[in-house]
């Protein structure tokens, strides 16, 4: 029993946000690396997400797709993301930084105003194109109702607001979750 407890304590000590985030980052890379993506309105994507001339972008998407979009945008230029100050948020923030995101910590319930100001400052501090976002119905819903935060960032930073949606045929859907989160799975075609 003592030995079992000792093992539990050692495992708990090992499970720091850094270690957990490293494991999660690896799983996310392996999992989504096999998902094939089709982009509708590709010209619009190339014009606004890739072309430096289009200026800063605020990306707005539903929370249900947050995990995949987080992965999808990992190769674009400088990016910022707003993440809640919860304990889960600590791990997500570590994962975000491993994927190259700059993180602003806060949400509608705690620290939101400060995080929004940080995001505006992040977009205004340089002439380099930057992309920012966070799920517009997060972190706790209601699902598919837009909150004003990201629109306020777009307004104050003079950035374009770009709505982004996604779906898939091979997905794991968390039906009991408030947002019906989707995890996209390996595609064969």
């Amino acid at each position: 029993m003592l030995r079992e407890n000792g093992m539990r304590i050692r495992l708990k000590k090992l499970a720091t946000p850094s270690v957990v985030s490293w494991a999660l980052t690896t799983v996310v890379r392996l999992w989504f690396g096999t998902v094939r993506v089709q982009i509708l309105n590709r010209a619009r994507f190339e014009r606004f997400a890739l072309d430096p001339a289009s200026g800063n972008i605020v990306a707005g998407a539903w929370h249900r797709n947050a995990v995949f979009l987080f992965y999808f945008f990992r190769t674009l230029g400088p990016r910022g993301v707003m993440i809640s100050r919860s304990k889960d948020g600590d791990i997500v923030a570590h994962v975000a930084r491993r994927f190259g995101y700059t993180t602003m910590r806060g949400s509608s319930s705690r620290g939101g105003a400060r995080a929004l100001q940080q995001m505006i400052a992040y977009m205004q501090e340089t002439h380099e194109k930057r992309l920012c976002g966070t799920p517009v119905d997060g972190p706790r819903g209601p699902a598919r109702i837009v909150k004003k935060g990201m629109l306020a960032v777009a307004k104050e930073a003079g950035a374009l607001f770009v709505p982004i949606a996604c779906s898939g045929t091979r997905v794991l859907t968390f039906h009991k979750a408030w947002d019906k989160s989707m995890i996209h799975c390996h595609s064969v075609k």
């Binding site: 509708l40 619009r44 629109l151 307004k155 949606a165 996604c166 779906s167």
Partner: peptide
Amino acid sequence: MIIDFGEPFRIAADADDAEMEIM
């Protein structure tokens, strides 16, 4: 999986609360 990009829009710097609600 499929991703779609909607029509981007800009919000006027002097937009008031009513205009923000429309956006």
